[in-house]
Write a protein that binds this DNA or RNA. Structure first.
Lengths: 131, 131
DNA sequence: TTTACTAACTTGCAAAATGCAAGTGTGCAA
DNA sequence: TTGCACACTTGCATTTTGCAAGTTAGTAAA
């Protein structure tokens, strides 16, 4: 930890170009497996992905278990601490959508967030819980 | 830009360990000058600070002008695009405060955010506007 | 039970980013 | 015109990242 600043604390967890993309894949893309993360369009290298998954797990943001149906696979999922990052992601999406056209953001996302941000977060959470 | 994903887009701006700390200093610490950023407790190197200020300015998140009272100084301030990152910072602070005790977060910050997040953001904005 | 296949890493090495110390250039005040 | 403050810049060592090529272990068909 670099200081007692909460922003600095958060950046120690996901202040890089890749960690939040893994979390994005878990939250919005329904991904759970190493290979799925690897196939995301940003193209993360396998060594970086491996180190990020380890760091996120050590940080208590994700957890993993051997996938029962195929024991060579590991299944990753968000912990409560990881799920609580959804509001951060939502604000980042809203900010990006406001300042850059053409991003992959659903049409009425901005108005939904402006109108009832809590409901947007709750909807994302409940969709995840179904899986 | 690595992809059309809004999270990825945002990370291209501030997906590192330093950019958001500069923005934090601008938003919460009332800092405006190179030396002030440099003196923050995390200890940013001058070359990194210089490159981050340039990148943030090129991105339209901050702007600078020669400080009239002392022309060797440059004064940095947030643009509208930068000010719109306040909600992201607020969510990050709330997340950190929830999961780590002892951080420098005001006592009732969490309850204020839970109770009326918009008001918290508006209060930060209006305090900044006074300067 | 051998062979092939798949998934999740690991390793080696080159390239890029970062950290640190020591400069440089410009304005200002004595 | 000397000294100083401030905002950078430079050089170099260290660290992190990116890429390609392994390695290990479970699975499934021959």
């Amino acid at each position: 930890m670099r200081s007692d600043c909460p922003i600095s604390y958060a950046l120690d967890f996901f202040g890089d170009k890749w960690s939040l993309l893994v979390i994005r894949d878990l939250v919005f893309e329904g991904k759970s497996f190493f290979k799925e993360f690897q196939q995301s369009k940003e193209g993360i290298a396998t060594n970086i992905l491996s180190s990020r998954l380890k760091k996120l797990e050590a940080s208590g943001i994700i957890e993993s278990r051997v996938y029962p149906q195929l024991k060579t696979k590991k299944e990753y999922k968000l912990t409560a601490k990881g799920l609580d990052l959804i509001p951060v992601l939502v604000e980042m999406i809203a900010w990006s959508a406001k300042y850059q056209e053409g991003l992959a953001v659903k049409d009425n996302f901005l108005s939904k967030v402006a109108n009832d941000r809590e409901a947007v977060v709750a909807a994302i959470r409940s969709k995840l819980a179904d899986q």
